[in-house]
């Protein structure tokens, strides 16, 4: 049996993140850790230690898919892991991230008012007003929280859907963070 490390329990963080954001949306900012750490590991260390060992989402998908047997375990479609789809999804994801930052900026500039809602799959608006008391922090800080939480929740939901349909960690095949960090590692490796 392989020894368990402290970081083998980071799947709890994945659940905790959404639980915290349900009660107070400002906790969404903590998600930036999951956004920056993988890039730091890739850029500074030239490795995917985050994906390989620290990713709470990967662990959660594995726990639910393999542990709880919620995954069909069928091979995912070949195009999931094709270069075109992976880079395409990364570009789409970054574009959505950019549009979220733009919305945050518009609120900061006073050109739009704070929208206390979550947007699922970049389409469906879900009211989330209980998780924030207006005026507690500058509006743009709250707007970023709602936007970032939407992004995190949407990507986790996609992850869960492909987990059920295919293999537990099918999401990893086209995870934008994974594509980004692998590309950085490949560039670093080529540079020597």
């Amino acid at each position: 049996m392989k020894k368990n490390h402290w970081y083998d329990y980071l799947w709890i963080w994945s659940i905790l993140y959404f639980a915290l954001g349900f009660f107070n949306i400002l906790f969404a900012w903590l998600g930036l850790i999951d956004f920056l750490l993988p890039l730091i590991f890739a850029a500074a260390g030239g490795n995917k230690f985050f994906c390989n060992s620290l990713c709470g989402r990967g662990q959660l998908l594995n726990k639910l898919g393999s542990g709880c047997k919620l995954s069909r375990g069928k091979p995912s479609p070949r195009w999931f892991s094709s270069k075109g789809f992976r880079y395409g999804f990364l570009v789409f994801f970054l574009a959505m991230f950019g549009s979220m930052l733009l919305q945050t900026y518009t609120v900061a500039a006073g050109a739009a008012s704070l929208s206390e809602a979550i947007k699922l799959f970049w389409t469906f608006r879900v009211p989330w007003d209980w998780a924030y008391t207006a005026g507690f922090v500058p509006d743009w800080v709250a707007q970023f929280s709602f936007g970032f939480y939407s992004l995190m929740l949407t990507s986790t939901l996609i992850g869960l859907i492909v987990m059920v349909l295919y293999r537990p960690r099918s999401w990893c095949a086209f995870c934008p963070m994974g594509t980004m960090t692998q590309s950085i590692c490949k560039l670093k490796n080529r540079a020597g």
């Binding site: 030239g46 995917k48 390989n52 960690r169 590692c185």
Partner: peptide
């Protein structure tokens, strides 16, 4: 060329025969 270097294989290998080479 298809590997995404996620490390799922490393986790399940009972012989520790797998590793992810420099994140690639």
């Amino acid at each position: 060329g298809r590997c995404v270097a996620c490390g799922a294989c490393v986790k399940v290998c009972p012989r520790s025969a797998l590793s992810v080479f420099r994140g690639c």
